[in-house]
Amino acid sequence: MPMTKDFPGFSTRAIHAGQEADPRTGAVVPPIYATSTYKQDGVGGMREGYEYSRTKNPTRRALEECLAALEEGRHGFAFASGMAAEDTLLRTVCQPGDHVVIPGDAYGGTFRLFDKVATRWGLNYTPAKSSDVDGVLAAITPNTKIVWVETPTNPLLNITDIAAVAAVAHQAGAILVVDNTFASPYLQQPLVLGADVVVHSTTKYVGGHSDVVGGALVVNDDVLAEGLAFHSNSMGAISGPFDAWLTLRGAKTLGVRMDRHCDNAEKIVGWLGQREEVAEIFYPGLETHPGHDIAVKQMRRFGGMVSFRMADGEDAALRVCNSAELFTLGESLGGVESLIEHPGRMTHASAAGSPLEVPSDLVRLSVGIEDVEDLIADLARAFG
């Protein structure tokens, strides 16, 4: 990774890691290697290890090197989606009869993977409030292989002390997996804090433009990396070259975008705090947030995600979601455009009726990088 050794700044790595100029043409942007196979110089004579694009592709490799550099990790893996990354990780680390501790307010898709898919091949799980280190410890069993956390969580933005939970997991012989999607590697680097694996839906902030679906894993351990490489190739849920190229293009501007996301979110939180219709705001930048002090310690800033509860209940939450115009009603998050959603009926519908069910009066915002005055005006109209 030329240059990044001598210039370790985040945005320098985002622009240069894995992205050296093409040695033949001098092109500064890595090309899209739209190929399924590669010519070999004699039987077994692969060029730089390339034989088949499910196993290895230069465009995907550029993205993987960049993501590893951004997370201060040694090995990166790019997948077709965040869920593909999670599934590959589980099948690499776990076997039937093993146990995983998951967040008590996990993303609905993650919960569905554990509850509806992984349990069918014999994996057990226990939800625990990962902001409570003692609660995580109590949920660990002799068969626990993974402690899985999101920080901030989706959608209630709870904060986990990564270093403290890493110590608890390691003492029990488990690994710590951190879903870093909400924070992005610009705001938080879990491997530095003791995590073993970082998971991303690169669809979100890393890609940043709502035009590509992808996922990633970043690790330091060489043995684990070897297992992930084997399962990635064997299961085949890898990122295609065009998707990898789009994600890599988005990663270049991650730092500047995240600063604007944070600026806008902080101003919207301030506005929400003055509205009597709002019963509760979930944002780790608030000094009243129970995880604020930990967030200050382990995050650069507090992110672009904001959730709040409406004082008048579910009908009021639905009315705000349906009335917003500049805030697009839609699932996903992390794009340059602002989104609004009702988690209970949208992204977290799969958790309905379970211990992970989210409040029905909850509204989630993915605050984009538009002019914040326009965003506040749109919310004001939606509130009525």
Rank of each mutant, 00 (worst) to 15 (best):
M3Q: 13
K5T: 06
F7W: 11
S11P: 11
Q19F: 01
D22T: 03
D22N: 13
V28D: 06
P30W: 08
I32C: 06
T35M: 12
Q40D: 03
D41M: 12
G42I: 07
V43A: 13
R47N: 14
Y50L: 15
T55F: 13
N57T: 06
S81V: 08
T88K: 01
R91W: 08
C94T: 15
G97E: 10
H99W: 09
V101I: 02
V101Y: 00
P103N: 02
A106P: 11
G108Q: 06
G109T: 14
R112L: 10
F114Y: 15
K116A: 15
T119D: 01
W121Q: 13
L123D: 06
P127W: 00
G135V: 06
L137S: 14
A138T: 12
N143M: 14
K145W: 04
T153R: 04
N154E: 13
I162C: 02
I162A: 02
V168T: 15
A169K: 00
Q171A: 14
Q171N: 06
G173C: 09
L176M: 05
L176Y: 06
V177G: 07
N180K: 13
S184L: 04
P185V: 04
L187D: 06
L187I: 08
L187Y: 07
Q188S: 12
Q189N: 14
V192F: 08
L193I: 01
A195V: 02
D196H: 03
S201V: 08
T203I: 00
K204D: 12
Y205P: 03
S210G: 00
G214R: 03
G214L: 03
G215V: 13
A216T: 11
V219G: 05
D221I: 00
D221C: 04
A225D: 06
E226M: 10
E226V: 02
L228Q: 07
S234A: 14
G236F: 03
G240N: 12
G240S: 07
P241Q: 01
P241L: 07
A251C: 10
V256H: 08
R257V: 05
C262Y: 05
A265M: 03
E276Q: 11
E280I: 03
P284N: 03
T288L: 03
V296H: 02
V296F: 03
K297T: 07
M299W: 04
G303K: 07
M305Q: 04
M310F: 02
A311D: 07
D315A: 15
A317L: 09
R319D: 10
V320H: 06
L326F: 10
G330N: 11
E331S: 12
E337W: 09
E341N: 14
E341H: 09
M346C: 06
A351N: 09
P355F: 05
L356A: 05
V358F: 05
D361R: 08
L362W: 05
R364D: 00
V367C: 07
D371G: 05
L375Q: 02
I376F: 11
I376N: 05
A377Y: 09
D378T: 12
